[in-house]
């Protein structure tokens, strides 16, 4: 098996575990908060979800750097200045930063869970765009700043909408009891 294929399999696996884990956190959290109390069993299930997301994050980051090393050794270094790559790196950093904020209780559930859930899905979509070389730019001319800013603006809007939808989803579930 060649290294590139191994990295693709590893990166996709990490993304699936991360996106799947982040989605399950939301589902389990909504279910747990239904009665406004999180039992020990519910806490244990959430702990497994968080653990899976961390495994996904580490696997995605390590294999992601594998791609960057591959770019370097195949003289494909222009890829390292791709605005989509830097947007994806920024979102991954936000996922990591959000993990610390949630751990320190410095961010509330409304924004914390939306950041985690939307960031994972958004990073996965940017990854697909990066692979398929799909570009979009709100500012007309193709520049690094223009494309990077366009992606980040879309991401911020996605987080805001995501936070509202997740809250509605939690309210709907808790109103069923």
């Amino acid at each position: 098996m060649n290294i590139e294929l191994l990295l693709i399999v590893g990166h996709i696996t990490g993304t699936i575990i991360g996106v799947g884990g982040a989605t399950m956190i939301e589902a389990h959290l909504a279910q747990s908060l239904k009665d406004k109390l999180v039992s020990k069993d519910e806490k244990d299930i959430l702990a497994i979800d968080y653990h899976m997301v961390r495994i996904g994050l580490v696997l995605s980051i390590v294999t992601g750097f594998g791609f960057l090393i591959l770019d370097k050794f195949t003289d494909n270094t222009a890829e390292l200045y791709d605005p989509q790559l830097w947007a994806k790196l920024s979102i991954v950093l936000l996922i990591a930063g959000n993990t610390l904020l949630l751990q320190a209780h410095k961010i509330n559930l409304y924004w914390g869970s939306a950041l985690s859930f939307v960031s994972w899905w958004f990073a996965a979509f940017v990854g697909i765009m990066l692979t398929e070389k799909v570009h979009f730019n709100f500012f007309g001319n193709v520049t690094f700043i223009g494309e990077f800013t366009s992606i980040i603006i879309t991401y911020i809007v996605a987080v805001i909408i995501g936070a509202m939808i997740l809250q509605k989803f939690r309210n709907k579930i808790s109103s069923t009891i």
Partner: peptide
């Protein structure tokens, strides 16, 4: 610990920029 992590991330991202600059 936070300062070490932040600096290490900055160093890592700098590495990507340096590699990208060599063409």
């Amino acid at each position: 610990s936070l300062a070490i992590t932040a600096l290490a991330i900055i160093v890592t991202l700098s590495g990507i920029l340096i590699s990208g600059g060599a063409r």
